[in-house]
Nucleic acid binder design. Structure first.
Length: 439
DNA sequence: TCTGGGGTCCTAGGACCC
DNA sequence: TCTGGGGTCCTAGGACCC
């Protein structure tokens, strides 16, 4: 048996921790650039605001219902998430942190499973202040379904709940739940697959569980076949309590306003390159492959999207080299024809320092030089860690006006920074934002 | 006017090998 | 007229997740 812990309306719950006025009111949190709805309070759900909906489309609904709108603040959410996961890891031996607000954990050999889960849920509510739901089942897919049932309690009158914890205990309950789970709500079944399944008269989780497994395998591949097996209680997706090594690191943002000129896009890219390389160094990795991509909005009538990849002979950690390559790649894919909405960098093919294969021919870096590179990068990270991100940066990453000390008349629009109009303070991660308590 | 960001895994098909 | 069998590796694209 295993369990899935899921934080309720996580981003909204985090915001409410520090701003109790939000409790009881409809609240939504927006994606980056204030684009779409990505978290909703129950009140917001009940007035019909949908997940993923573009913000601009529902402004009227938001005004007339006095919905509180917030930009996303990931430094809060990440910090709160870490605290919750630490409590869980203390109470259970094998925990897989699956996302910022979810974790699977093993219950093998644990007696009185429901009791233990209720205890940890109460502890998290008391110590951190975030309400969570925990579903217990034989497989990850079934645990996911169980959690969905907890969130939709009112639709499942035949089931008894122990606070926000549920274990499916007998076959009757399981059958009842699966019959009342639409196929598109199963973990691993998205838009495309649900269309296919419905065409083949597979409408509920119960239908999928009982269908011909080989037909699924042949038509849609091994992943969906595993889902079928997991619905039958056969474990195919195991809990991985050690975090696997990253395979790629990507940094990209949509621009606050669309950009036309190369120099503006370049000044956004250099910031992302610095972020991506410092992320990579945090994981103590060297990369061999660098990809830059550039695109217009996909809603644009004249859409353009392109990317280019460069593979090094020897993996590197050096920001200066990575930037040089990224800059060249951007030049190659940029066309002076479009209004762009996004640029990004992907680093991949990682090596740790010990396993780097040196080039036979191109051995231009001596051991000493490699060490110097590493020291320099470490220094950048240390200084930025201490004095704030961006204190030390590449000299290409600067505003010419900053040095010329005057705004040039034809300075081109470089307002690429993302919109974040409704952002709350970083209550737990920035000195100046820590809430003050009146005595 | 305005539509997120960061990932993973699988598959089909092409190119190549002996 | 007639053109094998068995394999690997790489890439692009698709589908999914939160």
């Amino acid at each position: 048996m295993l369990a899935l812990l899921d934080c309720n309306n996580f981003y909204v719950s985090c915001e409410r921790l520090f701003n109790p006025k939000l409790i009881g009111r409809p609240v939504v949190v927006l994606s980056n650039n204030d684009g779409c709805i990505i978290s909703r309070s129950n009140e917001a759900k009940s007035i019909g605001i949908k997940m993923g909906e573009p913000f601009f489309k529902i402004k009227n609904n938001i005004l007339s219902n006095r919905v509180v709108v917030l930009s996303s603040n990931y430094s809060i959410y990440g910090d709160i998430s870490d605290r919750i996961m630490n409590i869980l890891k203390n109470d259970f031996p094998e925990v897989e942190v699956y996302s910022i607000d979810e974790a699977f954990f093993k219950l093998k050999g644990i007696k009185d499973r429901e009791r233990r889960c209720v205890d940890v849920a109460n502890k998290i509510l008391k110590w951190i202040g975030i309400p969570v739901s925990i579903g217990i089942a034989k497989t990850k897919t079934l645990a996911k379904i169980t959690n969905r049932v907890i969130k939709k309690k009112h639709e499942y009158r035949n089931i008894t709940f122990n606070n926000n914890v549920l274990e499916i205990k007998n076959d009757n309950d399981l059958e009842y739940i699966l019959k009342n789970t639409p196929v598109e709500d199963i973990w691993g079944v998205g838009k495309k697959l649900s269309v296919f399944l419905k065409k083949n008269t597979i409408n509920s989780a119960f239908d999928l569980k009982d269908c011909d497994e080989n037909f699924i395998r042949k038509k849609k591949g091994v992943i969906l076949q595993r889902t079928v097996l997991e619905l039958r209680g056969v474990e195919c997706n195991y809990i991985e309590s050690t975090r696997p090594v990253k395979k790629s690191i990507c940094v990209s943002r949509s621009f606050g306003t669309k950009l036309r000129y190369h120099e503006n896009i370049r000044s956004a890219l250099i910031v992302y390159v610095q972020k991506a390389t410092s992320k990579m160094r945090l994981n103590q990795l060297f990369c061999r492959t660098i990809t830059v991509f550039l695109k217009t909005s996909r809603y644009e009538s004249r859409a353009y999207s392109n990317s280019k990849t460069y593979t090094l002979i020897e993996p590197t950690i050096d920001l200066r080299l990575i930037w040089k390559i990224a800059d060249k790649l951007l030049k190659d894919i940029y066309k002076d024809l479009y209004l762009y909405s996004k640029v990004g960098i992907i680093l991949s093919e990682f090596y740790d320092e010990k396993s780097i294969q040196q080039s036979l021919i191109n051995n231009k870096l001596s051991q000493k030089e490699t060490n110097n590179e590493k020291k320099l990068m470490q220094l950048i990270d240390d200084i930025n860690g201490k004095f704030g991100y961006g204190k030390l940066k590449l000299s290409s990453d600067c505003d010419k006006d900053f040095f010329s000390n005057k705004k040039t008349r034809n300075s081109r629009n470089s307002n690429w920074k993302m919109k974040s109009k409704y952002c709350s303070p970083c209550y737990t991660t920035r000195w100046y934002d820590i809430p003050k308590v009146k005595v």
